[in-house]
């Protein structure tokens, strides 16, 4: 009897070992793939990032020179997108959390916002191309791309703002209202100041998404390498530039440098968002 029990225990401990081994192995793979991807690109790319690369305009389709106009184009598109998306997103979140009284309409609207978050970027690109570029006649431009991107970052913004609106205690609202402030005054002077860091986090996450977006930008902004003067000019974002360089095999070092710079920017942006949202948590 004890023999059998011993055997069973042995069998069990082998099973445990295999189970934990597999789980640990798979988790390690996840971590290693992250380190390998980021490390490989940074190691190959960082040495080619220098002042000339950042400050010169691209020559011969990006084969030589730097990526100055591409960096400016990226910033330009992102700013346009965020300027459009932020007020709409914050207002929508305020409506959902402060005005809407629940019910079917709100849950339907929520459902659609959630779905908006799952639509792949190429569909946004197709839509932006059909609607902004062709139908509204904006052409390939910073404006078309900014509008398309603003639709893409809306769900992130709405959700982040809503989450932080929810954390404002009900007593704040009641206190403000009982002092004679109107609902709007309460929102502007009491509730929104409490949500500053939440909204900022959403904003930064949206910027991160806008900077890294490729497919939708490619179809709506075009690929001009010239410095954009107005929002009606075509330009090229860093992500699109990376794609062009990689797919056409123009210059190995410029490709790695662009990829490294892109990763650095996105990491920086996401770290900032993390930092701010953690401060909100405290």
């Amino acid at each position: 009897m004890t023999e059998k029990l011993k055997q069973r225990n042995q069998y069990k401990s082998i099973k445990n070992g295999v189970f934990y081994g597999i789980i640990g192995f798979l988790a390690a793979i996840t971590l290693i793939s992250l380190i390998v991807i980021v490390g490989y690109i940074l190691i190959n790319g960082l040495s080619h990032i220098n002042w000339e690369f950042l400050s010169q305009e691209p020559r011969r389709m990006g084969k030589e020179g730097g990526i100055f106009s591409v960096i400016i184009g990226t910033i330009y598109i992102t700013i346009v997108a965020m300027v459009i998306a932020t007020p709409v997103g914050v207002a929508a979140a305020i409506y959902f959390n402060e005005y809407a009284k629940g019910g079917k309409v709100v849950s339907t609207i929520r459902f659609f916002t959630e779905i908006l978050a799952g639509i792949p970027s190429i569909i946004f690109g197709l839509f932006g191309f059909a609607f902004f570029v062709v139908f509204l006649g904006m052409g390939w431009s910073v404006l078309s791309g900014g509008l398309t991107l603003s639709m893409m970052v809306l769900p992130t913004l709405v959700r982040a703002t809503e989450e932080s609106l929810k954390t404002v205690p009900m007593t704040y609202r009641e206190g403000s209202l009982s002092l004679g402030a109107s609902k709007w005054q309460t929102i502007i002077k009491v509730i929104l100041p409490c949500c500053k860091s939440g909204i900022l986090t959403g904003l930064i996450l949206g910027i991160g998404r806008a900077v890294g977006e490729t497919a939708a930008v490619m179809l709506t902004v075009g690929g001009s390498l010239k410095l954009p003067n107005t929002i009606f000019d075509s330009t090229r974002s860093m992500a699109v530039h990376l794609y062009m360089l990689a797919s056409e095999g123009l210059s190995r070092e410029k490709t790695y440098a662009t990829a490294a710079l892109l990763i650095l920017m996105v990491l920086l942006i996401n770290t900032a968002a993390n930092f701010i949202s953690r401060r909100l948590g405290n």
Partner: peptide, 8 residues
């Protein structure tokens, strides 16, 4: 890992 752009 989620923040890295797909083109990278």
């Amino acid at each position: 890992l989620a923040g890295i752009p797909s083109v990278v």
